[in-house]
Design a protein around this nucleic acid. Sequence first.
DNA 1: AATGCTTACGGGTCACGTAATGATT
DNA 2: AATCATTACGTGACCCGTAAGCATT
Lengths: 98, 98
Amino acid sequence: MVIELRQLEYFVAVAEELHFGRAASRVHVTQPALSEQVRQLEESIGVPLLIRTTRTVRLTGPGRLLLTHARLILAQAAACVQLTRLAFEGKLGDDSVE
Amino acid sequence: MVIELRQLEYFVAVAEELHFGRAASRVHVTQPALSEQVRQLEESIGVPLLIRTTRTVRLTGPGRLLLTHARLILAQAAACVQLTRLAFEGKLGDDSVE
DNA sequence: AATGCTTACGGGTCACGTAATGATT
DNA sequence: AATCATTACGTGACCCGTAAGCATT
């Protein structure tokens, strides 16, 4: 897989905050770490996702598109983990393992 | 994020092949590397996904559930990357960046 | 001068490959 | 004995935090 969920998570944070500093504290990493991961995501996809002027951050068109899908994917990933846990806990003691 | 797309990719390979060796070559890693990542995925979720007898591999109930969702998530991740690229390439030269 | 993103750099963690071990047929 | 998964272990890569650099207001 070329991209990772962590990168999507970081990107969504920046895209929603439109501010690397706030986004960084939101996902509990430092600004350079977040900046680097977003840069790598752009490199992996091969598409600029953000327009950085020294004081402001804006989304590109493709960036807006990715944001929508990234939110969905992250939500589904979190949901399917929870669902899997529930399937396990709700079935403890029966023959669910086979 | 607790889980990663790579782990889901490895898990799907094992779940579909029901054989660590074939799954490993399919995702182009060695068997121990794949085994370790699947183990970590199970640990992260806190749910056994596979039943390993020394000669056979079977899915647990929660494992089957996760497999369905993991396939979907991986497909969506791949699709949204392609879509983002298309959005970029299809808009080269116009004002799509703003 | 202050704010805010990036670049530089060193370190610790982690993913991976090779080799060895264990278990079942 | 052969097959197949796990465990052990060393190494390279990568993510991250600290520090410095650079641009804009």
